[in-house]
């Protein structure tokens, strides 16, 4: 791979998402989408699941999209993308395809981990030539932060509030990246927008993959995490420095850990700036916080071990 993401070079590529969208200040989504769509000069068709990105970029009669874009429903973006891929294949067979665009799906963690998992699994098993990007902000943010299966242990959400008896979400987040890796698809990766070089290199690899590529990208949500909008990228960085969000990839079945902090920071460093975790710092919730720390360390050790195989 001789691609080095060079901002000067990629900035020459067409801007696919126009400025002037309605995403919140400090939101990771716009940054992630722009970073991913900028790495290629190939034409792109975008499929968008229902969610923040869709709502904030498509309010009729305006659109922020400078490329062909379709939103159908919440859980079916992988299936819609399958249909587009099938259309391209049929037209190619008939010799009627002038230029083959890449297909990119953007869906949130709700549309990926929860309601869209079946369609995504189908897409992966059939190995359509599609880049599927999960914008993981750990919950249903467009509707005010209900818990999803990507919400971490202990998080206070509107459906797992930090109550007197039950202090936030009681179960661990789902390991969706491992689930996709288990489909043995060409390319699976986890990334974070604070490390744009890493994210853009992974996007580049995803575009080159012969079949499905899955990118799970950590997307800060200051609005619902109740963190400072100006520090969105700092929170993302803390997620990586604490090993909460490991940067790794699985290329043709081979795991590779792309970044390991010299000294793993305690999980408090990630939790502290976000009011959704405020209750975890109370003495009575110390054990819950310890459980979260243990879970983070276990998952990281697992990836490290897999990448040494």
């Amino acid at each position: 791979m001789n691609f080095i993401p060079n901002l000067k070079t990629v900035s020459q590529n067409p801007q696919r998402l126009a400025a002037g969208h309605r995403l919140c200040p400090g939101c990771g989504i716009g940054v992630i989408v722009k970073q991913i769509l900028t790495v290629t000069d190939q034409p792109i068709i975008t499929v968008n699941a229902t969610g923040c990105l869709e709502i904030c970029t498509s309010a009729y009669p305006q659109t922020s999209w400078q490329i062909p874009w379709i939103h159908s429903l919440f859980q079916n973006s992988a299936a819609v993308a399958s249909g587009i891929d099938a259309a391209l294949k049929a037209l190619e067979r008939k010799g009627k395809l002038k230029q083959k665009p890449k297909i990119v799906v953007f869906a949130g963690d709700g549309g990926t981990y929860d309601i869209g998992l079946q369609a995504l699994s189908g897409l992966a098993e059939r190995n359509h030539e599609v880049v599927y990007v999960c914008l993981d902000n750990e919950g249903y943010m467009n509707t005010g932060y209900q818990r999803s299966s990507a919400s971490p242990l202990g998080a206070a959400t509107t459906t797992t509030p930090a109550g007197k008896k039950i202090p936030g979400k009681q179960t661990n987040r789902k390991n969706i990246t491992a689930i996709l890796a288990a489909h043995n698809i060409p390319y699976v990766a986890q990334a974070s927008p604070h490390n744009h070089a890493d994210l853009m290199l992974k996007a580049h690899k995803a575009f080159k993959a012969k079949g499905v590529a899955f990118l799970n990208v950590f997307s800060p949500c200051p609005t619902n995490w109740k963190s400072a909008p100006a520090l969105g990228m700092e929170v993302a960085k803390a997620a990586v420095e604490t090993n909460f969000w490991p940067l790794f990839e699985v290329e043709n079945g081979k795991y590779r850990l792309d970044y390991e902090p010299k000294e793993r920071k305690p999980i408090d460093e990630f939790l502290k700036g976000q009011k959704r975790f405020k209750h975890l710092f109370k003495p009575e919730n110390a054990e819950l916080k310890n459980r979260l720390q243990a879970e983070v360390d276990t998952r990281f050790a697992e990836i490290k071990q897999l990448s040494q195989m």
Partner: peptide, 28 residues
């Protein structure tokens, strides 16, 4: 036939794939 047959994992996805294809501009 020249058709691309998509053996989807549900009827929900069958119609969704048809939407993707038809919106692309082909017969689904």
């Amino acid at each position: 036939v020249d058709t691309e047959f998509v053996p989807v994992e549900s009827e929900h996805s069958a119609m969704s794939a048809c939407i993707g294809a038809a919106a692309s501009g082909v017969r689904a």
